[in-house]
């Protein structure tokens, strides 16, 4: 009886794994289809839809826009997240817990609401349709993650290192630049890469806040998916996924960055 139950449990887990994996696998397979229809390739595989993607100015422009918005998001999220994380890790002040909760709230706010709120603001301030307002929207989701990652790694630092540097006469800025930053560099990079991944994959805010000049990749995929079914969407998704995977692998490699820092630490 218990044996049967265990079998069912494994079967259930396998089904959930399939549920999580299948959509991604199927999309990747579809991007290699040799036909013009939504038909999964079985024997023949082709790269024609990737060529179609890179030959179409509409799609390559969108790719460029995605990269620009992603880079802007990284800069904004790192600046806001890093300064705030140091503030949270170093100082005690009233309302600290409340401010921390408030800083994390945007992550739990649906994109539709953030997008609608920023849309009205963008028109009021003349930012409508620009790269900046999209990046601001994306960084609302990205900087809380940077704060979480950075705060953990800053609080894990040995405070005596900082005290030693300050005691030997280094200014706070110099202490930060030459002692703290090299030690937390891996988490800074992880935060940056997460911000980038969030940005290139987000589309509701891009849909609301972008214009025809600042269309990001997901913003083109969405109507294409809605109104015409073509394998080009699969190859566009493939490009997005490839970008994400490359960034993630980079992330994984940079986790080993810690070793590098340890080798280079002045003795």
């Amino acid at each position: 009886m218990r044996w049967l139950g265990r079998c069912f449990f494994h079967l259930f887990a396998a089904l959930v794994v399939a549920y999580f994996l299948l959509p991604i696998v199927v999309t990747v397979m579809m991007s290699f289809t040799p036909t013009r229809f939504l038909q999964l390739p079985t024997t023949k595989w082709s790269l024609q839809w990737y060529f179609a993607f890179f030959e179409d100015v509409e799609w390559t422009d969108a790719l460029r826009n995605s990269l620009i918005v992603g880079a802007l998001t990284v800069v904004l999220a790192l600046f806001i997240g890093l300064t705030a994380a140091i503030g949270f890790a170093r100082f005690q002040f009233r309302w600290k817990a409340a401010l921390y909760t408030l800083a994390l709230t945007p992550v739990f706010t649906p994109a539709v609401i953030l997008a609608m709120a920023l849309l009205a603001l963008a028109y009021e301030w003349g930012l409508e349709g620009g790269y900046l307002i999209i990046a601001i929207g994306h960084s609302l989701w990205a900087f809380p993650l940077v704060i979480i990652v950075m705060r953990v790694s800053l609080e894990g630092l040995d405070p005596s290192l900082e005290e030693a540097a300050r005691g030997m006469g280094a200014s706070p800025w110099r202490t930060f630049r030459e002692v703290i930053l090299p030690l937390v560099a891996p988490s800074v990079l992880v935060g940056a890469l997460f911000a980038f991944i969030i940005s290139i994959n987000e589309f509701i805010m891009a849909l609301f806040l972008g214009s025809s000049e600042t269309e990001t990749l997901p913003r083109i995929i969405y109507p294409t998916l809605r109104y015409r079914l073509t394998p080009l969407v699969a190859s566009a998704s493939g490009v997005l996924m490839l970008l994400t995977v490359v960034v993630l692998l980079l992330c994984a490699r940079l986790m080993n960055f810690r070793k590098l820092v340890e080798y280079n630490r002045p003795h």
Binding site: I24, V26, T27, N201, Y222, L240, M241, T244
Partner: peptide
Amino acid sequence: LPKLSNMLVLVYGLEI
């Protein structure tokens, strides 16, 4: 994995 990939990719895959 689903969180790190584009939601449109997931929906497209499910559609197929």
